[in-house]
Computed example of a mutant assay.
Amino acid sequence: MTAQSANYLWAIGALVLAVSALVAQRASIGSILRSLIAWAAIIGLIVIAMTQREQIEALVTTTADRLGLGGQTVEGETVRIAMSEDGHFWARVQLNGYARRMLIDSGATVTALSQETARRAGIKVGEDGFPVVIETANGSVKAERGRVARLAIAGLETRDLSVVVSPAFGDMDVLGMNFLSRLGSWRVEGRTLVLDPRREGQHPPRDTGA
């Protein structure tokens, strides 16, 4: 059974329980119909929120960026990210439409994802060559290769970006230099990371993977 089918069954069950409760109370037909419509509307909204969660999260993320909430702001096509309390820069990123908070690390050669993030973003691994060995702060780890069809930070977007995926990353997701090098420029101004888009005539580097 798919998650969507389970959501529909849950909604139907909740509606049946609500009607049964009204019937047990011997409510009038008019009251039952009004309550039925109200419950159907509430359950419909819940089902929409469940089935369209990723699209809703993406919309909320984009709106928050435009309003300058959460330390990430958009000025024209430029994205500015304030340094967090831990001294790092964290970006709100969309991976194939899946919203995720990722650490920006210029010391990482390639973008690295947890297995859960790769699964939720629909990224297939193991089809882009042999596994690779990645050097991390905790030593060497084996990782599978994959590619993100679309990765975006607000209006900054790139496509077909190579990534590595490994259970050794835990729940950590990192944006590496293979993403930063596709930008027009990036720099740190005080406690703010500034990401500029690639301008017309600037050609992105060839992404050959890890």
Rank of each mutant, 00 (worst) to 15 (best):
M1Q: 13
A3N: 14
N7C: 14
N7F: 14
W10N: 14
A11K: 05
A14M: 03
L15D: 11
S20R: 08
A21I: 08
G30I: 08
G30F: 13
L36G: 15
I37D: 11
I37L: 13
A40E: 04
A41K: 00
G44E: 15
V47T: 04
V47W: 04
A49Y: 09
M50W: 12
R53M: 07
E54K: 02
T62R: 09
T62L: 04
T63E: 05
T63H: 09
D65E: 05
L67D: 15
G68I: 00
T78R: 03
T78G: 02
V79G: 07
V79M: 04
I81G: 02
E85K: 05
G87R: 03
V93C: 07
V93F: 02
N96A: 01
A99M: 02
R100K: 09
L103P: 05
I104S: 05
A108Y: 02
L113Y: 01
L113S: 13
A118Q: 01
G126Y: 04
G126K: 00
E127G: 11
D128V: 01
G129F: 06
P131I: 05
V132K: 00
I134A: 00
E135D: 10
T136N: 01
G146I: 01
V148N: 03
R150G: 12
A154K: 00
G155C: 08
T158E: 10
D160V: 06
S162L: 10
V163P: 02
V164I: 13
S166T: 12
P167T: 07
A168L: 02
F169Q: 14
G170C: 03
G170K: 06
M172C: 15
L175C: 03
L180I: 06
S181M: 13
L183Q: 05
R187G: 10
R187L: 08
V188I: 15
V188E: 13
T192W: 01
L193F: 06
L193C: 11
L195N: 09
R198K: 10
R199A: 13
E200S: 14
Q202K: 04
R206M: 14
D207H: 05
